[in-house]
C-alpha cells in the first residue's frame, strides 16, 4: 500500500474541502473496496478523507419515499423494516451481494462507487484503459468470461459489479450529491455511465463531489418483485447475470413492468422498449419471452462470454415470472424452480 495522509472531518463542508485539498485524494467509508484496491496499487491516493464520522447515517421519510444516508451500511439497509416492507427488492438485492461481514462494513455511498472486478483492472502489470487511460484493453480478446455484453466500447468492456445498484435502477432512485458547485440530484439511470472513450470514469459524480443520500420514490412494488442472481457459486460471488424485476398488475394484465440487469454492462442495464412492450400485455410466459427477445437483440458477446446471452434471456423470463406471480426468490433459497 502507498503512503498517504489521513484526515477525519466531522462535517460535509469540511469533507468537501478536504477532498479538494490534495490531488488524488479519496473518500473512504467502509473501505471494503478502496483498501482492497490500494493493496493492489490500483488506487494510490495521497490523502484519505475518512467520512465515517459525518452525519449521514439515517434513513428518513422523504417526499413520500425514503432518504437513505450515504453511510447507512448495506446490512442496516437490508434489514430496515421500512425497506423490507416497502422496498423488498432492495433488501433482497443487497442480501444477494458479498458476505455478512462485508455488508456490515460496506456503505450505501461506497456500494454505488465501487469499481469493476475486471481481472486486468486489478492487475497493475497489464494494460487497462480504466486504470491507465490510453494503455489498451487486455480483456478484449483476453479472459472475458465475466465481462459485458451490452454498451461496451472498443476501449473497455467492464461491468459494474453491484447488486444493490441493479435494484436501485429498477426502483428509479435518485442520488443526492454535493460539492463546491452545490447540491444536485442525479437520476439513478444517469449516475453510472457507459465506458465510451473515457472508461476511467465509472459515474457522473465529479471528483470533488460527495454522495449524501440515495432517495427512493414512494412506489416500491412491494407485492410483485424479485432479485434473481446467477453466479459461479451459490453465495459470496459476483453476478454473471442478475435481474431485478418489478411488476404492477391490473388483474392478469401488466400495468407496468420494469427490469434491470446486472453483470452485463458498465451500469445496471434497462431497456425502455422492452418494458413498454409489456404494458397492457397479459402476464404470461409468452409476453416475458417477447420482452427478453427485445433486450437480447442488442447483446454483443465477447470471445468467452457468449453464454451470458442465453443466461440473461432465461433470467429475464424467470425474473418476470417470479415478480408477476408474487413469488420472489429468497437469497437463502438456492433451489432453481
Amino acid at each position: 500500500m502507498n503512503r498517504f495522509d489521513y484526515v477525519r472531518p466531522t462535517t460535509v463542508e469540511e469533507a468537501v474541502k478536504a477532498i479538494g485539498s490534495a490531488a488524488n485524494a479519496r473518500f473512504i467509508a467502509g473501505g471494503t473496496n478502496l483498501v482492497d484496491l490500494m493493496k493492489y496499487n490500483v488506487e494510490r491516493p495521497e490523502r484519505l478523507v475518512d467520512i465515517t464520522r459525518l452525519p449521514l447515517e439515517g434513513i428518513e421519510e422523504h417526499e413520500g419515499g425514503l432518504r437513505i444516508g450515504a453511510l447507512v451500511t448495506n446490512s442496516t439497509l437490508a434489514y430496515d423494516e421500512r425497506i423490507q416492507n416497502r422496498y423488498p427488492l432492495l433488501s433482497s438485492a443487497i442480501l444477494a451481494g458479498a458476505s455478512g461481514q462485508l455488508r456490515n462494513a460496506a456503505t450505501t455511498g461506497g456500494n454505488l462507487n465501487q469499481r469493476t472486478r475486471c481481472y486486468y483492472f486489478y492487475d497493475e502489470a497489464t494494460p487497462c484503459n480504466k486504470r491507465e487511460p490510453g494503455s489498451g484493453c487486455q480483456a478484449i480478446g483476453g479472459v472475458n468470461r465475466i465481462h459485458a455484453i451490452f454498451g461496451t466500447s472498443e476501449n473497455c468492456i467492464a461491468t459494474h459489479p453491484s447488486d444493490m445498484c441493479v435494484a436501485l435502477a429498477a426502483l428509479e432512485a435518485q442520488v443526492r450529491v454535493t460539492g463546491p458547485g452545490g447540491e444536485r440530484r442525479i437520476p439513478f439511470a444517469e449516475f453510472h455511465r457507459l465506458p465510451g472513450d473515457t472508461p476511467q470514469y465509472d459515474t457522473t459524480l465529479k471528483a470533488d463531489e460527495i454522495v449524501l443520500s440515495v432517495d427512493l420514490p414512494d412506489e416500491g412494488f412491494a407485492g410483485h418483485h424479485t432479485y434473481l442472481k446467477l453466479r459461479d457459486r451459490l453465495s459470496y460471488a459476483f453476478a454473471l447475470v442478475s435481474v431485478a424485476a418489478l411488476v404492477r398488475l391490473d388483474g392478469n394484465t401488466i400495468g407496468e413492468a420494469r427490469f434491470a440487469l446486472g453483470g452485463v454492462a458498465h451500469k445496471p442495464w434497462r431497456n425502455a422498449e422492452a418494458e413498454a412492450f409489456l404494458t397492457g400485455k397479459p402476464a404470461t410466459r409468452e409476453s416475458f419471452e417477447g420482452a427478453a427477445e427485445i433486450v437480447m437483440r442488442e447483446a454483443k458477446p465477447q470471445s468467452e462470454n457468449g453464454f451470458k446471452i442465453e443466461l440473461a434471456r432465461r433470467a429475464i423470463i424467470r425474473g418476470l415470472t417470479q415478480a408477476a406471480s408474487g413469488t420472489p426468490q429468497s437469497q437463502s433459497d438456492k433451489r432453481i424452480a
Binding site: R3, F4, D5, Y6, V7, R8, T10, E46, R53
Partner: peptide
Amino acid sequence: MLIDSGSPGAPA
C-alpha cells in the same frame, strides 16, 4: 476537523 495527520507526503 477531528484529525489531520499533516500535509501530503509527510504522514505521521
